[in-house]
């Protein structure tokens, strides 16, 4: 009887230790897990705050190329939001950011350019990584774009006849064609067949019609496949299309840019009306708000381009007549 009691006591001790141990382990385990998820959220938040600061900086100062060290996480960029892990932050309506859908790696390159049509409207922010290689097909416009791109970027100017001689450098590729030849008519290097479809994109610039066409490489076709096209206003938008590589993202940013253009033009129209009132008795200083009163939408790109030319001429005439200029 005595020895039985002893056995029960010893077993109870072990059961007690087991329960207490499990409870203690669970308690500390849950604390560790909670702290880890907190720390992940903090890191994501820090990255997003830094990205927002970079975007705000780019909005106010242009032509700056900044390489930024980032933790080895996936940053997803869309036209109106940017996400790291489960945390998402909005990109405001006035920020125009051209970037590939996913930014990975240890370094991110940010660059900004002022965009005016003809007056200053906004600064475009471009984001990419050195993992992307921009292959520009040699032409007059091609050279212009190539030399506009910053030094830190992985870029190459290639003759249209040497495209098939390109060698695999381990980069994701973005080809920029200028209608001669079009992407689906070019002779492409063989190593593209060993790459994933989403790692190779191409855009074709039709300067005559102010049109950009978007293509994606299809292994099954061993060629580029046409997706869609969109208009552009200025070289800054061609560079935007190169960096985003995706028609949907590009069009969304183009719409944002047109919205901003409408607002800035509204201010210029109001300013011109004031000048009209001041100089109504001076025939050499002629002001009209007609060039500002257009529809700033994607369907009206031709009228926007015509209005730009009209404004440039009117501004030059006012300058010649020593009158305050329109912009």
């Amino acid at each position: 009887m005595n020895s039985k009691k002893g056995v029960i006591e010893v077993q109870f001790n072990w059961v007690f230790i087991l329960i207490a141990g499990v409870l203690i382990l669970l308690f500390f385990g849950s604390i560790v897990l909670k702290l880890k998820s907190n720390s992940d959220t903090t890191i994501s938040n820090t990255i997003l705050t830094n990205m927002q600061t970079i975007m705000a900086g780019a909005e106010v100062s242009s032509n700056t190329v900044t390489p930024i060290s980032i933790p080895d996480t996936k940053i997803e960029v869309s036209c109106d939001s940017i996400s790291v892990g489960s945390i998402t932050s909005d990109i405001t309506k006035n920020k125009i950011v051209f970037a590939p859908e996913i930014i990975e790696g240890r370094t991110m390159l940010t660059w900004s350019l002022p965009w005016g049509f003809p007056y200053h409207i906004s600064n475009f922010l471009y984001m990419t990584t050195p993992n992307f290689k921009y292959i520009i097909v040699d032409s007059t416009k091609g050279k212009e774009i190539y030399y506009k791109l910053p030094q830190g970027l992985t870029k190459q100017l290639v003759d249209k006849n040497s495209l098939s001689d390109l060698s695999n450098s381990g980069h994701k590729l973005a080809f920029v064609f200028f209608n001669d030849p079009e992407p689906d008519q070019a002779s492409l290097p063989y190593f593209l067949e060993n790459m994933k479809d989403n790692e190779v994109i191409a855009i074709n610039i039709d300067s005559g019609n102010n049109k950009i066409s978007f293509y994606q490489y299809k292994k099954s076709l061993k060629n580029f496949e046409y997706f869609s096209d969109a208009p552009y206003l200025g070289d800054e938008m061609i560079i935007g299309a190169m960096f985003s590589g995706d028609a949907k993202n590009y069009i969304c940013n183009l719409e944002k840019a047109l919205k901003k253009m409408e607002i800035v033009s509204m201010v210029y129209a109001e300013r011109t009306e004031e000048l009209q009132r001041i100089f109504h008795s001076n025939p050499s200083c002629f002001y009209t708000i007609t060039p500002f009163e257009i529809d700033y939408s994607l369907n009206n790109i031709d009228a926007i381009i015509d209005s730009k030319r009209d404004l440039e001429i009117r501004n030059e005439n006012l300058q010649k007549a020593s009158c305050p200029t329109l912009y």
């Binding site: 109001e270 300013r271 300058q319």
Partner: peptide, 22 residues
């Protein structure tokens, strides 16, 4: 904006006509 190029902006300067318009 600079009279030579509209894309060159002058730092710390606001155009009064634009301010009034906005």
């Amino acid at each position: 904006t600079s009279p030579t190029s509209a894309n060159i902006v002058i730092d710390d300067c606001f155009d009064v006509l634009k301010v009034k318009a906005l």
